Amino acid sequence: MNEKQRVYRFLTGVDNADFCHKVTEALSKGWVLHGSPSYAFDAEAKVMKCGQAVVKDVEPFAYSREVVLGSI
């Protein structure tokens, strides 16, 4: 049996079309939404910011902090 390894990313950004494109790009590359989006007001920048967790099951690899998760 070939077991997969799950990787996790948390995408963040200002609540605008660019953030939606960031999430859509991740989905188009095989990432899957994980949980609900989150929103918070950044009082210093005076903007709403949002985040969305995504996960992806991949072939096992030697994980290290140097891995660029967006390139998986």
Score class of each variant (00 low, 15 high):
residue 64 S to H: 05
residue 52 Q to F: 09
residue 71 S to R: 11
residue 23 V to N: 08
residue 44 E to W: 03
residue 55 V to S: 11
residue 68 V to D: 10
residue 53 A to E: 06
residue 34 H to E: 03
residue 44 E to M: 04
residue 8 Y to Q: 09
residue 6 R to W: 05
residue 58 V to G: 00
residue 39 Y to P: 01
residue 71 S to H: 12
residue 30 G to Q: 05
residue 31 W to Y: 02
residue 7 V to H: 02
residue 46 K to T: 15
residue 6 R to L: 08
residue 70 G to M: 05
residue 12 T to S: 13
residue 54 V to M: 12
residue 46 K to S: 12
residue 48 M to G: 10
residue 15 D to A: 08
residue 71 S to V: 10
residue 41 F to D: 04
residue 6 R to N: 07
residue 19 F to N: 00
residue 48 M to Q: 12
residue 23 V to L: 12
residue 63 Y to T: 07
residue 31 W to V: 00
residue 6 R to S: 09
residue 57 D to V: 00
residue 32 V to I: 15
residue 19 F to M: 03
residue 69 L to I: 13
residue 53 A to S: 12
residue 22 K to M: 09
residue 16 N to M: 05
residue 41 F to E: 03
residue 55 V to C: 11
residue 58 V to R: 02
residue 23 V to K: 06
residue 20 C to R: 14
residue 6 R to V: 14
residue 67 V to F: 02
residue 23 V to G: 06
residue 50 C to Y: 07
residue 22 K to D: 08
residue 70 G to D: 07
residue 57 D to T: 03
residue 47 V to Y: 08
residue 9 R to H: 11
residue 57 D to I: 01
residue 57 D to C: 03
residue 1 M to D: 10
residue 58 V to T: 08
residue 53 A to W: 04
residue 35 G to C: 07
residue 55 V to K: 10
residue 9 R to A: 11
residue 28 S to A: 09
residue 5 Q to Y: 03
residue 60 P to I: 00
residue 29 K to S: 11
residue 36 S to P: 00
residue 42 D to I: 02
residue 4 K to A: 06
residue 49 K to H: 09
residue 40 A to T: 09
residue 69 L to M: 15
residue 19 F to H: 01
residue 13 G to R: 10
residue 72 I to E: 00
residue 58 V to P: 00
residue 58 V to H: 04
residue 55 V to L: 10
residue 67 V to D: 02
residue 69 L to C: 01
residue 27 L to N: 04
residue 49 K to E: 13
residue 14 V to T: 13
residue 51 G to A: 10
residue 34 H to W: 05
residue 8 Y to I: 09
residue 16 N to W: 05
residue 37 P to T: 02
residue 1 M to G: 15
residue 21 H to A: 12
residue 9 R to V: 14
residue 29 K to P: 10
residue 37 P to Y: 03
residue 16 N to R: 05
residue 25 E to A: 14
residue 38 S to I: 10
residue 30 G to T: 05
residue 24 T to I: 07
residue 61 F to W: 02
residue 46 K to M: 14
residue 18 D to W: 01
residue 28 S to D: 09
residue 37 P to L: 02
residue 25 E to Y: 15
residue 63 Y to W: 15
residue 7 V to R: 00
residue 25 E to C: 12
residue 66 E to A: 13
residue 14 V to S: 07
residue 39 Y to G: 03
residue 9 R to M: 13
residue 63 Y to E: 08
residue 72 I to L: 12
residue 65 R to K: 14
residue 46 K to R: 14
residue 38 S to A: 15
residue 67 V to M: 02
residue 19 F to S: 03
residue 6 R to Y: 04
residue 7 V to Y: 01
residue 56 K to W: 09
residue 32 V to F: 07
residue 31 W to F: 06
residue 20 C to G: 15
residue 41 F to G: 02
residue 11 L to P: 01
residue 40 A to Q: 11
residue 49 K to R: 14
residue 10 F to L: 14
residue 63 Y to I: 07
residue 62 A to G: 12
residue 54 V to G: 05
residue 62 A to M: 14
residue 13 G to I: 13
residue 34 H to T: 02
residue 22 K to T: 08
residue 50 C to A: 08
residue 24 T to W: 07
residue 45 A to F: 01
residue 19 F to E: 01
residue 52 Q to T: 11
